[in-house]
Design a protein around this nucleic acid. Structure first.
Ligand code: SF4
Ligand code: SF4
Lengths: 145, 145
DNA sequence: CAAATAAAAGACTCTTTTATCTTAAATTAA
DNA sequence: TTAATTTAAGATAAAAGAGTCTTTTATTTG
């Protein structure tokens, strides 16, 4: 598993918001019901994205959350870092505690190359154009599209 | 996190065993104490590797677990599949349930390329030569080598 | 055979993640 | 200013992952 379930929810929400004009507030309740995600749980996750300046939020009538910048400028990397932290991008593949790579193991260098591809992908991929696909899947659960 | 903690333990154990002649039984107790892993927990994990024909085991005095084939022929891929399953190698990056990639999303193809590098790395990397590094780390916890 | 050894199996606990529920605070609109 | 709306915050619960403990089964040794 590359990302946590929380992170998945965060990414899906940003993809969902990318279908609206940037800066337009959308209630979290709408996102959660359209994507079949627990409302209160999603609230906490989106708070992380707000804290990371990826979303902005507004309370009260007419409020909600909105993209803080254009969707194309929000990368998977930004979202994963905000929710899961940098473990995926910098931590030890083998989860060996205490390895600071000052004395790299035999596999480290090649691993760094492979992971570099993942990092590059995440840094250069935004969630634009994902909304349709997601809503399709949300509407046809377990249909194996 | 690419792999689970259980998987990390399994990989470390195989690396540890690679320091012994192939087929030579080593008690799990020895592995667990040298690597600072809970004995009974490790037992369950190594059972998965035995079930996957990566290790062989023998009960009773003089028994233990042993590599079922030469260490160089055991890849990270084998170990991850045996303990964590194939999710990492085949599952959806975004953890979207029900996506069978018959109708791929805009990011799928590029993601497949990046993940292909990870898969290739795991399929071509064995744990030989890792034992020294691991014992060093186990002996100097949190020393950030 | 009896005793010692060591994996296998099962029950149980602790921690982290995921999910739910309740209350508070901020904002808008009438 | 009152009511409605909506995020923020906190408490609690369920599920999954990780770790511990006990009992059983298989094997070797004497
Ligand atoms: S050197 Fe090896 S053990 Fe250390 S962080 Fe890199 S992959 Fe992990
Ligand atoms: S097509 Fe997109 S949503 Fe489907 S499995 Fe691939 S990455 Fe996931």
């Amino acid at each position: 598993m590359f990302i946590s379930k929380s992170c998945s929810y965060g990414i899906r929400s940003v993809a969902y918001l990318s279908g609206y004009p940037q800066g337009r507030y959308v209630p979290i309740r709408d996102i959660s019901s359209d994507l079949n995600i627990s409302y209160h749980f999603l609230t906490k996750i989106l708070q992380m994205l707000t804290a990371a300046n990826i979303l902005i939020s507004s309370r009260g009538a007419g409020g909600g959350v909105a993209l803080a910048r254009e969707a194309a400028a929000i990368t998977l990397y930004d979202l994963i870092i905000a929710i899961d932290g940098d473990e995926l991008f910098t931590g030890c593949l083998l989860r060996l505690p205490g390895c600071g790579t000052k004395t790299p193991c035999p596999m480290h260098q090649e691993w760094d190359v492979a992971r570099g591809k993942v990092n590059h992908f995440c840094c250069h991929t935004s969630v634009t154009g994902l909304k349709q696909h997601m809503l399709l899947l949300a509407a046809n659960p377990a249909s194996d599209l």
